[in-house]
């Protein structure tokens, strides 16, 4: 737990925690609104977004790619809504039609265009590269107060921190209307809440979190973090405030335990190489959810929510 930890593990772990929290917060509301799988859809369409951005700009730079991913997420949400309304198809199937088609388009674009010179592939989109986000300029814990070293922090950290701050601010500012619109949309509308705009805002915030998290950790964590911490928290309490708190706790725990297990677990078992941190974080969040399913005090919910 010395200098090596600060250089190799501190930043990836922080990024993992921030990504997990940024996704878990909107995940709570998506869960209650039966929109959990929107995270699944968004994380799939990020790929065509970044590929299109790459083909347009010809280089792997972050901003165009983030913009492309965000645009793809918006296009996907609009298309899902269009297919659902115009085709009168149930939401799940409409989602399935749109995100598989866009993902297929992304893979095809990637395969037929020449991306051999750059680091852009499907595997990267899925797993991310959490382990590679090391803090080269750090020398130890004292680097945390060293401006020169701090300037060398990976840019991904700042981006995911900004996204997490944005998501938190959105949840904080719109708490009351969000809660009202989530539990009783008719009541909220009668109270003057623009529920349609708010619902769209929630999906956009989720998309922002997904895109920023995807940049650092790949899409597996994104789907898992949208759903697992919030679902586990839902089984712990009937109160939404407490549920959000539990979900943040579960998200942080998944990120830390998952990262440690991925990095050090194989060494304890006698192996030499680390395994995928993104996959391990998702797995740990699933284990937490399984625990909540088996022992969560409100797992049946028959007493109050029946």
């Amino acid at each position: 737990m010395g200098a090596d930890f600060v250089i190799l593990s501190l930043v990836p772990m922080l990024i993992g925690i921030l990504a997990a929290v940024a996704c878990a917060l909107p995940g709570n509301f998506l869960l209650l609104r039966r929109q959990s799988l929107i995270g699944d859809a968004i994380s799939h369409v990020v790929l065509p977004g970044i590929v299109a951005a790459f083909l347009l700009t010809g280089q792997v730079t972050t901003l165009p790619m983030l913009a492309g991913a965000a645009a793809a997420a918006l296009v996907a949400v609009a298309l899902i809504e269009a297919v659902r309304r115009l085709g009168r198809i149930e939401p799940g199937a409409a989602m399935g039609v749109v995100f598989t088609t866009m993902f297929a388009g992304g893979v095809l674009l990637l395969d037929v265009s020449d991306t051999s010179s750059v680091h852009l592939d499907v595997e990267h989109a899925l797993y991310g590269n959490l382990e590679s986000l090391i803090w080269i300029d750090a020398e130890g814990w004292h680097s945390l107060v060293d401006p020169a070293a701090l300037a060398g922090l990976p840019a991904e950290l700042w981006r995911i921190a900004a996204a997490a701050a944005g998501v938190t601010a959105f949840t904080w500012l719109f708490w009351r209307p969000l809660v009202a619109a989530t539990f009783d949309e008719g009541f909220a509308r009668a109270q003057g809440v623009a529920t349609t705009a708010l619902g769209l805002g929630l999906v956009m915030v989720a998309a922002l979190a997904a895109v920023a998290a995807f940049d650092a950790v790949g899409s597996i964590i994104v789907i898992a973090m949208f759903i697992c911490p919030a679902a586990a928290a839902r089984l712990m309490t009937d109160r939404l405030g407490a549920q959000v708190a539990w979900s943040v706790g579960f998200a942080v725990a998944s990120a830390i335990i998952g990262y440690v297990l991925a990095g050090y677990g194989p060494l304890w078992l006698g192996g030499q190489d680390a395994v995928s941190a993104a996959g391990m974080i998702a797995t740990v969040s699933g284990a937490i959810l399984a625990g909540a399913c088996l022992a969560g005090p409100r797992r049946r919910g028959a007493t109050s929510s029946a």
Binding site: L31, R34, Q35, S36, L37, G92, I227, A230, A231, R234, L235, C293, G296, R298, R299, R300, G301, A302, S305
Partner: peptide, 8 residues
């Protein structure tokens, strides 16, 4: 067995 919806 739990109150989670199917999509979650």
């Amino acid at each position: 067995r739990t109150r989670l919806p199917e999509d979650a």
